[in-house]
Simulated scan of single mutants.
Amino acid sequence: MERKALFFLDECRTVISTSIKKVLAKVGSKPVMRVNIGFSSIYVILAINAWTGEVVVSLAKRPNSESVKYFLRYFKRRVGSGRVYMVMDNYSPHKTKGTLEVCRRKGIHPVFTPPYSPELNMAEAVFKSLKNYMSNKIFYTIEDVKNCIKQFFKENKYRFNLNAITYLGLDKIEV
């Protein structure tokens, strides 16, 4: 069976404020953590290959139609020619006339998930790992946030141990 080029696309907002998670500390001690409570943010847009777990990543100031169109062009330059199926949620910038036109010109066939079903998008698993990686860190500037995001993907070599069959639980279905 030939595997088609299948990717999952999504966006995630990352903020400059510190996200606090549990930490290990000596019994009886009181951990002290410096935090930032700023509101500046950056959006991570990524597409993950359903079979290999490889990702294509871009950063954007806003998750609007223009940033999605830019990402799709960038994505297509990275993955090369040929037909690609792109699973996306029903976020309005994914469905604009301009976005759909870029998809058509670049050979990207959008597949939209049902509303309110983030569990069907593999990109959510990557974002969960990213948020965990960024927790308990203090950022003073948005550049610090960007550098942390870049470092996360660099450390993971732009590849995650995910594939669509196991992620969606299709390996447990008997035929």
Rank of each mutant, 00 (worst) to 15 (best):
K4C: 03
L6N: 10
L6K: 09
F7Q: 03
F8N: 13
E11F: 01
C12Q: 11
R13F: 12
T14E: 14
I16T: 15
I16V: 15
T18L: 10
S19I: 15
I20P: 00
I20G: 02
I20T: 04
K22F: 02
K22I: 00
A25S: 15
K26C: 00
K26Y: 00
V27C: 01
V32H: 03
V32D: 00
M33L: 13
R34G: 04
V35E: 00
N36Y: 09
I37P: 08
G38R: 06
G38S: 04
G38D: 01
G38H: 05
F39L: 12
F39C: 12
S40M: 09
S40F: 06
Y43I: 11
I45R: 11
A47V: 02
A47Y: 08
A47L: 11
A50C: 01
T52V: 12
E54I: 08
L59K: 13
R62E: 14
P63C: 15
P63A: 15
N64K: 09
N64H: 10
N64W: 07
E66I: 13
S67T: 15
K69M: 15
K69F: 00
Y70F: 14
F71S: 01
K76Y: 08
R77W: 08
R78A: 14
R78D: 09
S81G: 13
R83L: 14
Y91K: 05
Y91L: 11
P93G: 12
P93F: 05
H94Q: 08
K95H: 05
K95P: 02
T96Q: 06
T96H: 06
T99P: 02
R105Y: 06
R105D: 10
I108T: 08
H109C: 11
Y116G: 00
S117G: 01
S117P: 05
E119A: 13
M122K: 12
E124Y: 07
V126G: 07
F127D: 02
K128G: 13
S129I: 09
L130K: 07
L130G: 05
N132G: 05
M134D: 01
N136D: 00
N136W: 01
N136T: 02
K137L: 02
E143V: 03
N147Y: 07
N147F: 07
I149S: 01
I149E: 04
Q151S: 09
F152C: 08
F152V: 06
F152H: 09
K154D: 13
K154N: 12
E155W: 07
K157Y: 03
K157P: 02
Y158H: 10
R159S: 03
N161L: 09
L162Q: 08
N163F: 04
N163D: 14
D171T: 03
D171F: 10
K172A: 03
E174M: 05
V175H: 13
